[in-house]
Design a protein around this nucleic acid. Sequence first.
DNA 1: ATGAGTGCAAAGGCTTTGCATTAGG
DNA 2: CCTAATGCAAAGCCTTTGCACTCAT
Lengths: 171, 171
Amino acid sequence: MSTQAPSAVPLATTKANAASAKKSAEELHLTASQRLRSQNLRYTPSRRALVDILACSDRPLTIPEILEQDCSLAQSSAYRNLTELIEAGIVHRLIAGDEYSHFELAEDLTSHHHHLVCTQCGRVADITLSDEVERSIDRALEAAASSVGFLAEHHRLDVLGRCATCTSARG
Amino acid sequence: MSTQAPSAVPLATTKANAASAKKSAEELHLTASQRLRSQNLRYTPSRRALVDILACSDRPLTIPEILEQDCSLAQSSAYRNLTELIEAGIVHRLIAGDEYSHFELAEDLTSHHHHLVCTQCGRVADITLSDEVERSIDRALEAAASSVGFLAEHHRLDVLGRCATCTSARG
DNA sequence: ATGAGTGCAAAGGCTTTGCATTAGG
DNA sequence: CCTAATGCAAAGCCTTTGCACTCAT
């Protein structure tokens, strides 16, 4: 089923992602609901709100950013719900630096992408690369990993630097 | 001078790194000493020991791993010294997951490489990719970054999965 | 009524910091 | 001598957890 959370799919997910267009909000919530159900968890209004907030953002958000948009949820509940959404394969956690974690929808609910991480303000933006480059990266990483018996599950490619705002604010 | 810490060199460092062979221990310590001196810091035995430990390892190490090899240093001093070595451009800190940070020598003291991160045991191993793939990645990232006014400083590319030990220990 | 979800407060765990002491140029 | 470096203990900070209460089926 295309709505099942992937368990251990190797690196070569580029084509599949390119093929699956971004899900509609309806499909997204249905999928989220199903994945939670399969673990005997409920798709509560709080969790739906979290998914909505992440779906509406064009970049991964931190807990403070999320709570800014929905302060009705206790911080601990936000963390707990995000953890459960992660375990259900709906959300992905990103460790960008030494500050807050960033949360985004899982890649199979959006599409394969990478990140621009501002080393000054911590903001993270999404970027995508061409399928050609992605395939070249996949091949190279898979070769390097398998040569040492490493079972590659996925890769992360981040660009570190200064975002436009921080660059213009201070050279 | 090739012994100066780079301040904001863009992505295209592949050729330079490929050209500069791994420094000898002597050169390494000299460079480290000079970089610290330029910030009015001393190259103490503790700091030299830290550099030695990192130089002898073929992978980034955590604080516990470092202290295992030199328990003569207080944990707080290890953190403080590593922070100063980072600020002097001698050491690089890696945030692999939600556990300990990993420390390694700065890339211009070793060579450009990437990491295999085991999601089970947290161990990090180094890998290198071909210059061709690196150039292709650099070009793609630079194009994506500059199109949104992002000033790219460097990139990080990690493979997440299971290391050989964890794979054989438990399917 | 049985199990999941929530909020509050407290605890955890890695890392940083304050402060007095020691060492180096 | 003056400044940096060190060790110990305490504090910080993001995140997780315990517990009692509420809600859904």
